[in-house]
């Protein structure tokens, strides 16, 4: 499991590789926030193309970043979701407040 950061079109791109559960989230959420603060980006886009599992801990992580970016006048969105992750977004109702894009490029253009 790993997390990497890129910047594109005024957005912090968070690339996650692995399975997102409580164990993973506890280790990465602070580093995501500190990257956003250090780099001065108010928009966060999660790139989930290398994520094949996510439970409700991932939902909590996304909602937490949504609140963080909203407070700073930005947005949080997600891209490249597998069918499994889309289902979690639907079951949780998260799709109502977090936009889902097919690609990171689409997500950055929408900011």
């Amino acid at each position: 499991m790993s997390v990497g950061f890129k910047t594109l079109n005024n957005c912090l791109i968070v690339e996650i590789d692995g399975e997102i559960d409580h164990h993973f989230v506890d280790n990465v959420k602070k580093s995501i926030d500190s990257q956003a603060v250090q780099k001065g980006y108010s928009n966060i886009i999660f790139d989930f193309k290398n994520v094949d599992f996510m439970d409700s801990a991932g939902i909590g992580m996304i909602i937490g970043r949504y609140k963080f970016t909203k407070k700073n006048g930005g947005i949080t969105s997600v891209a490249c979701l597998s069918d499994n992750l889309k289902r979690i977004m639907m079951v949780s109702g998260l799709y109502r407040i977090i936009k889902i894009y097919n690609t990171v490029e689409e997500a950055t253009k929408a900011v």
Binding site: K29, D55, S56, G60, G64, V91, S92
Partner: peptide, 9 residues
Amino acid sequence: ERSGLGFTI
């Protein structure tokens, strides 16, 4: 940052 969705899922 617990979502409170564990049982729902």
